[in-house]
Design a protein around this nucleic acid. Structure first.
Lengths: 248, 248
DNA sequence: CAGTGGTCTAGACCACACC
DNA sequence: GTGTGGTCTAGACCACTGA
């Protein structure tokens, strides 16, 4: 990063030019995991205010190039991890090959949007299973799976009153049903305070929200809302789940 | 938006609390398309600096709740547009039901990442077709489709030297091949300056990058990199391409 | 032209990690 | 403690839109 000053002739925003310069430096002069100089030093080195430098770093972090941790520093991020999210039709979550970890389960009224998706009454309680996905030593996603009790086959023993135990029970009962189709959507969202804590990020961090509706016998029987860390994940489909690509 | 001041007792960031308050106000007191007060007025009304207010607005814009246009103002955004991106195996781009508009085509060496995907030499020129997708009167996505000339069936007339004509020719020749599987990945990116201009956004705006590799007879024959406006698009899969969901 | 959002500055203080 | 990134302020000027 030999550059010390940047002189622009074009009315191109400083933070944009800065981002370009830093991006090139990351490619040529830094290794994955290596620490950058601190923000105050970088700002001084490029002759800009710290806020301007931070705009550039924000961009690079959004693109998954950098990793910033309060009290620690800024390091070069490893390539994004590929996570397979192909809708495998005619299967239920928690089946073979599913590496999500069930962490909790309660039976409460879901968010309004979920109730609409499940076509249940807005205040009707549904089984709410929380699961998380760990890849390369890091929690990269969290999922809430919603199942109306009415959709599940009745059993004598309802299992544990709450917690992971109960979650396993719900998933097991779900697998007794004949699976059908899935509708899925992906959009950009931002992490809630609690999600951010569990994903080791700051509130409002960008996440990829994957919403799935499970259908059996023509009726919705479950809905899942999974939030993936947008900075560290690449969602993949198809046979070769992780083919390499770094955009831009 | 009756709130004039906000007093926090928790050490919750101001911009976060502000975002929550504004979000609730958008739900209850504003209609789609309605203009918000300008930033200086809003900041004064909530007793914060304009930069802090802008942090909150940035978030809401990222979530697709707001639409900001320089020189004009800030308005409440309509719900995101659902765009079907299911990999329809055994089909080529430009086939029936494909509503993308071919705008340009040149034959040049592709970015290094694309060459790697296509398993061609880094400096080998490939047909590069640019297409754009319009939904609800707005360009919501742009795609670059890369096809190595060697993969296409040879023809006597190579068509126009460049432009949309040439692009149509490339797509037509592609459809003569036996289609195979597709590998697809989705990740968060940021718009280049040119993309941003064509998508009517600012440089660095968040986009959903959909990368597709088309395989025929076990070999990669084409690659596509599509960038969707993350603020206005929801990518959908499955039979019912647009089912409603608004997260958070 | 006036009004909007976008950029930028030079500070200050806070929350957190690590020693 | 010290050093890091995160938040916040109170200004200033610029680029753009539309009357």
């Amino acid at each position: 990063m030999g550059t010390t000053q940047l002189d622009q002739q074009q009315p191109e925003p400083k933070h944009w030019h800065l981002k370009t310069v830093l991006s090139a430096a990351l490619d040529t002069e830094f290794a994955v995991g290596q620490a950058l100089p601190n923000e105050r030093e970088l700002a001084a080195r490029f002759g800009v205010a710290r806020a301007t430098l931070r705009q550039a770093l924000d961009q690079l972090e959004l693109e998954g190039r950098l990793q910033r941790r309060r009290g620690v520093g800024t390091t070069v991020a490893p390539p994004r991890v590929g996570v397979d999210v192909s809708p495998r039709h005619h299967t239920w979550p928690g089946g073979p090959g599913d590496t999500w970890i069930t962490t909790d389960c309660v039976c409460v009224p879901p968010p309004a949007a979920v109730a609409r998706l499940l076509e249940t009454a807005p205040d009707a309680p549904v089984e709410t299973v929380r699961r998380s996905l760990v890849a390369q030593g890091q929690t990269v996603a969290e999922e809430l799976l919603y199942v109306p009790p009415a959709a599940l086959p009745p059993v004598g023993d309802r299992g544990a009153p709450h917690g992971a135990e109960r979650g396993h029970g719900v998933l097991a009962r779900l697998r007794l049903l004949e699976p059908g189709e899935q509708d899925r959507a992906i959009e950009l969202g931002s992490a809630t305070a609690e999600q951010a804590r569990r994903l080791d990020r700051l509130p409002g961090s960008p996440v990829l929200v994957v919403t799935t509706r499970y259908v059996a016998a023509g009726r919705p029987v479950a809905a899942a809302v999974a939030t993936y860390r947008a900075d560290t994940c690449r969602l993949t489909f198809g046979n070769q789940p992780a083919f390499p690509f770094s955009a831009s």
